[in-house]
Amino acid sequence: MYASLPRFLLRRLLTGILVLWGAVTVTFFAVSAAGDQVDAILGPQAANLPGLRERVAAEYGLDRPLPVQYLDRLASLATGDFGRSYQRSQPVTRLLGSQILPTLQLALSAALVGLLLALIATVITAGRGRIVRTGTSVFEVLAVAVPPFWLGILLLSLFSFNLRWFPAFGSHGISGLVLPTLALAIPLAGVLAQVMRQELELVEGRPFVLSARARGQSRLGLLLRHTLRHALLPATTMSAWVLGTLVGGAVLVEKVFSRPGLGTVLVNAVQHRDTPVVSAVVILAALIFVVANALADMLYPVIDARLRETSRA
């Protein structure tokens, strides 16, 4: 279909790797600039024991020069080794391995539900009168302004404690996933619906819409055959950002719902300055971002033929 596709993909892959390498580098040097890691491992009280500092530094490889540590870090990350937790002194991969799935599950289901809610809102209100549009836009602004963690508390209070429809704690299969998903999905739906409707209104002013209507296209036909595709373009651009934000938001929502997941581990690690764990989560999130971005980049020219030739320049 388009000749430059392989080259385009290769370039995207390279940029992705570059961003990841940057993410690793930034976190590594930020951690080493923030102070002596041995203090973080030992805590203030144990630091005075003679010989202990040196032993711990040697154990974690912190006694070597910084460039060596950096190269070692790159090499071990390349093999999927994220180092060892200071606090639990076990490999970070094992610590996170069991926790990453519930978080991803929550983030993905929230992404799907959010997109679905936004699409429904857009389709229902598209082309309606001023009052309907103003009403929905007020609703959207509200949805965006509500922090997911508080929405979670509201939902808990209403559906778990008062109506007792859903369990208040833990992850009991699907029923335990409903409220946390909604808490994340509703603000997201607000953002997506705003972006899509803004684009939709912009596109509806374009002459080609008038052309289509002059051919006898109905309101729904116009939306499905023409304008909705345009509205999906900015939403596609945002998808990587959306996933990242959802992973971030999931940490808070998990705390509110006492769900297992990255949230509990991460907050614990932050409080104990367990930097290998925190860096690992941050780098994983960057990986998700890079992958999602690459997917969006591949999706973009499928929706918009004009972009298939951009690499010509």
């Binding site: 002459p207 008038l210 052309s211 002059a214 051919r215 023409h226 033929a305």
Partner: peptide
């Protein structure tokens, strides 16, 4: 009735 508008670059849907 058929209708023809000014500039086809914007009067035809660019995505189709």
């Amino acid at each position: 009735v058929g209708m023809v508008l000014q500039d086809a670059l914007v009067s035809l849907d660019p995505l189709r």
